[in-house]
Amino acid sequence: MSTSSPAPQAVTTRLLSLRNVNKSFGAVAALTDINLDVAAGEVVAIVGDNGAGKSTLVKVLSGVHLPDSGTITFESNPVSIPDPTAALHLGIATVFQDLALCDNLNVIDNLFLGRELRPGRLNEAAMETRSWELLRQLSAKIPSVRIPVASLSGGQRQTVAIARSLLGNPKVIILDEPTAALGVAQTAEVLNLVERLRERGLGVIMISHNMADVRAVADRVVVLRLGRNNGDFVVGEVSPEEIIAAITGATDNAVTRRTAQIDLRSASADKGVTRS
């Protein structure tokens, strides 16, 4: 197993570090001795098969689950994240896979949910102006911010969810499968967005199944397998095969076998073409 050295600047500007984090549900150890580092201006992709513990890790970081043991260090201070509010206060924003939007509320209400301006007499004009600013920064294509979120498309909803996480000026943003439900153009937009987040100096943790997306934007790839760390790669120094091997735990796995089969088939098809 290859464990590449972390990027040199990560040591100095390390934002968030997890050391030996454990979490189990009953007899099932969902996370075992997980280590993770995120630096400012770094995109870390977390990959792994279904059940590898990616979602549990996200939930630990966003305050949905408390870890059983282990330390979380944020900006060199040991912290605990007992609930989602604590995570937001620290500066860790999470965009969940199910986006967690209120369908009955409009875009502005959803963006400012839980942090409305002027709680006793809502400042709707300021919130709407800010919403437009934010959405235009993300070059979102949303016709009106005063329509219920239910009437938006999947990509628009994703944009709203990401825009919402940016409102609190977070330092670390966690994206859980941000491109899973998106079309080609919208995926590209979200990836651009991720790069913009990096340029703004945020630490980005991106969970993804899509190798192409991971290689397109991530600086590092952290592989989880059955709740354990199974590799930490610098993108550019690693081939997709190596990542897949780390994900599945073997060089001989379903993916390589399938690739081999396809190669074989296309080779024989080529032969058929040349023969006729």
Binding site: S62, V64, P84, T85, L88, T94, F96, L99, A100, L101, C102, D103, N104, L105, D109, L113, G114, R115, R164
Partner: peptide
């Protein structure tokens, strides 16, 4: 309204 619309979303928004 948020709690009535999607209680989990409201909770995650820090309400």
């Amino acid at each position: 309204y948020a709690v009535g619309g999607n209680v989990e979303a409201a909770r995650r928004a820090g309400i």
